[in-house]
Design a protein around this nucleic acid. Structure first.
Lengths: 156, 156
DNA sequence: TCTTGATATTTCGATTGTCTAACTATATGT
DNA sequence: ACATATAGTTAGACAATCGAAATATCAAGA
């Protein structure tokens, strides 16, 4: 097997592990995966708008409306009419919502962080360089992507 | 920002790029993402069973039944009662199904492969080592995972 | 062989995520 | 002030997903 195949297999293992884990994580928090992602985005800054979330997740605004409906019913977030532009709705995270994101038992990421930080300096540097290389190869042409660097839920 | 954060951000870029692309890929093939994944799994070996697919994708069998219903209606696969264990249904890919998987315009993977193969030897080796390291950190404890190495649609 | 328990699949009913199109309210430019 | 654009919601549709119940088959033991 050549290196290209090896790299693809490793990539798929990474994708698979994270995807499968994402479901469990959300479930442990009492939410669905999509709801949890929305909550994470809002939690990043404490507030957002449906429009911004929709662009960030690349789904329609209508989808966000229904996700927000559910999160609101669960008291994870609150809707508030924007003062500056009354067409907009500010989505504000509640204390409970913040706690949910904060305390979600993200075992996968925790384990990753733990193991990563046990590595030698040079190895950490190599991994970062490699991952950034791969990321660039994958999303390089994605020029219409969100201008906001995706830093959601960095660190556990 | 420390190296841990940098690696997490790069990982998220990888995850995001592949997830977003997966939707487009399936759509280009005239299927949904879930349907396309099922078809890929069947295409790997030419045939499978609902049970095996469900375990592999970690969804319930009921979900697979409905996905298979749709793929069957589109003549991508055929159902056939197993001869050896008549409780089982063999899911067999049709020529059309195979062609669909084969010719799906997987631009993302094509670009990745193209760029990967342009790299220096040593850099390819570094990427493989790094990706495998990360994969091990992420799915190491996933001992109940499919025993079959996930080689679906290797190479374009 | 007959029974009993396990397994593979499907069916049914429900919830969720997702879309497009239409609608409402607000903003903005001329 | 009017026309047009933008933010959000609503309505109606379909797909993915689940758990529970139903059906058919297998397998092991009395």
């Amino acid at each position: 097997m050549d290196r290209t195949d090896q790299s693809l297999i490793a990539l798929r293992r990474i994708l698979r592990a994270t995807e499968l884990y994402g479901r469990d994580l959300a479930k442990a928090a009492g939410l669905t995966a999509a709801q949890f992602r929305v909550l994470q985005i809002i939690d990043e800054t404490g507030a957002s708008t449906p429009k911004a979330i929709a662009m960030r997740m690349r789904v329609s605004q209508a989808t966000i409306t229904s996700l927000i409906d559910r999160l609101e019913r669960q008291k994870m977030i609150e809707r508030k009419r924007s003062e500056i532009d009354r067409r907009q709705t500010d989505i504000i995270i509640t204390e409970q919502g913040h706690q949910t994101v904060e305390h979600a038992p993200d075992a996968l990421q925790q384990r990753y962080v733990r193991e990563f930080e046990r590595l030698e300096e040079w190895e950490q540097a190599m991994l970062v360089a490699s991952l950034e290389r791969v990321a660039a190869m994958l999303d390089a042409h994605d020029i219409d992507a969100s201008p906001v660097l995706d830093t959601r839920d960095i660190r556990t």
